[in-house]
Amino acid sequence: MTTRVTLVSPAMNPSLREARFDDGCSLDAAGAARAHAAAGELRTAATALVSPTVRCRETAAALGLDARAEPALASLDMGRWRGRTLDEVGAGEPEALARWLADPAAAPHGGESVRLLCARVGDWLEETARRAGRTVAVVEPEVVRAVAVRVLGAPETAFWRIDVPPLTATSFTGRAGRWNLTPGTALGGSSGTP
């Protein structure tokens, strides 16, 4: 039995442009246009899922996916840092930011640690592997990173070493407890870089 999972990162929005922890803002005009241009590029899937964030839901809709929200694929809970830029956090809490980037178990923002995110999406992946067929999900970049860490058996410290550009599709194929990864493919006729 083969399981195929394609994870699509959301199109561009102002938060991504500003390196701001998700603040619930919508796609910008260019991101929405690019997502609409990519409609029809994804292979048909038995299951279509979406992270509960605004930009993921809007991206899924623009891609023409009739996707249901999957709480297990929610973005990393950034606690009190939500809506702040990386520079703002670095200026106000440099030690906490450094600890968060170096230690996967750290959650100085009062939200979720990278370790907990990796465990959560790893559990989802194991459950998904019990079903044959194709799943496509529009998810935040950190969810793609967490799945990649799990699939590759990489240490959680590798999480920050994986780049996931906007509107790219990363595929995972699993069979007999073993997964293969196909790195992100840009959708919408662009390189995927901001």
Rank of each mutant, 00 (worst) to 15 (best):
A72L: 12
L42I: 13
M78K: 04
E112M: 11
A35W: 04
P104S: 05
A46G: 15
T135P: 05
E156M: 08
R84P: 01
E112S: 09
G64W: 05
A19F: 08
A46S: 15
G40Q: 12
A186S: 15
R4E: 14
A106Y: 01
T6S: 13
R84A: 14
V5W: 02
A61D: 14
N180L: 11
T44R: 15
R84I: 06
V136D: 02
L49N: 07
A106N: 08
D103H: 03
L116V: 13
P141C: 06
A148L: 07
D28T: 01
S9N: 03
V147S: 06
C25F: 02
P10Q: 03
D77G: 15
V5T: 02
V54H: 07
A46N: 11
R80D: 09
L187H: 06
A46Y: 01
T135V: 15
V8Y: 06
S51A: 15
M12I: 13
G192A: 07
A35P: 05
H36Q: 14
A148V: 09
D123K: 05
E142Y: 02
A62K: 00
R17Y: 00
L181G: 02
A176W: 09
A19V: 10
A119L: 14
A106H: 05
V144M: 10
R99L: 11
D123S: 13
S75K: 00
C56F: 03
E112W: 04
G79P: 03
L63R: 07
R130W: 00
A33L: 10
T135S: 07
D103M: 05
A186C: 09
M1A: 14
V144T: 04
A137W: 04
G153F: 09
T47Q: 14
P14K: 10
T170P: 01
L117E: 09
G83Y: 13
C56M: 05
L125Q: 04
A169L: 07
T157P: 02
G192C: 02
